[in-house]
Design a protein around this nucleic acid. Structure first.
Lengths: 110, 110
DNA sequence: CGTGTAAGGAATTCTGACACG
DNA sequence: CGTGTAAGGAATTCTGACACG
């Protein structure tokens, strides 16, 4: 599942509050919470229950904003987003396999 | 001045509120604001005046926390931090010059 | 010097609901 | 379906100050 390098640490760390996400995306709080209910974004919660988003979430939300403008519905968007996730995962896997073959070929280790 | 690649965009974007910085660093709000007064960190302000920090600021603050534990004072810390900044800048410069030479040697372009 | 704390106010965020469509 | 809004409460953040040392 967690196929992220340490380089991506800041991309996925959930530290941004909803107000800042509004500024970053141009979306309203209402919209952002609604997309959560429709399972398009998954913020974490602080101890007191405040939503925390990652930069990756912000990117997803900007993508959502564009697709919604084009008339896409949340149900369809959910499928798309899952597809994107899967594709990214597949790429990681492919990468790893290729690296494995190369390492074998050149007789190298990690 | 701004010698940051696009890759670093998330590292320097000021989006984290002080409460989250407390959780991330283990410092109190009081301490974080004090280090700002002593010119060790430079948060931005939201429209309503709330402090916003970057991941880079958080790293700086963790560094500060360590040095303070070792008995270092803020005045001394300020000098150190400026030095670190300068060094980083020098490295970037050196890197760029070397790249330039290599490109000239191999007759390549960006 | 560096940090805790109580103080009072302003801004933030949360939830569930009414509304329109 | 997607989003605006008013409602009331709880948590956040801000500043300037008193305190200890």
């Amino acid at each position: 599942m967690a196929a992220h390098s340490q380089r991506d640490a800041y991309l996925f760390k959930k530290v941004i509050s909803i107000g800042t996400v509004c500024e970053l995306t141009g979306l309203s709080e209402r919209q952002i919470r609604y997309y959560e209910k429709r399972k398009l974004v998954f913020p974490e919660r602080s101890e007191k229950g405040n939503r925390k988003y990652s930069f990756s979430d912000v990117e997803t939300l900007m993508d959502i904003a564009n697709k919604m403008e084009d008339g896409m519905q949340t149900a369809e968007l959910r499928k798309e987003l899952q597809n994107a996730q899967t594709k990214r995962y597949d790429n990681k896997l492919r990468e790893r396999m290729i690296r494995g073959q190369l390492n074998a070929y050149f007789n190298k280790r990690d």
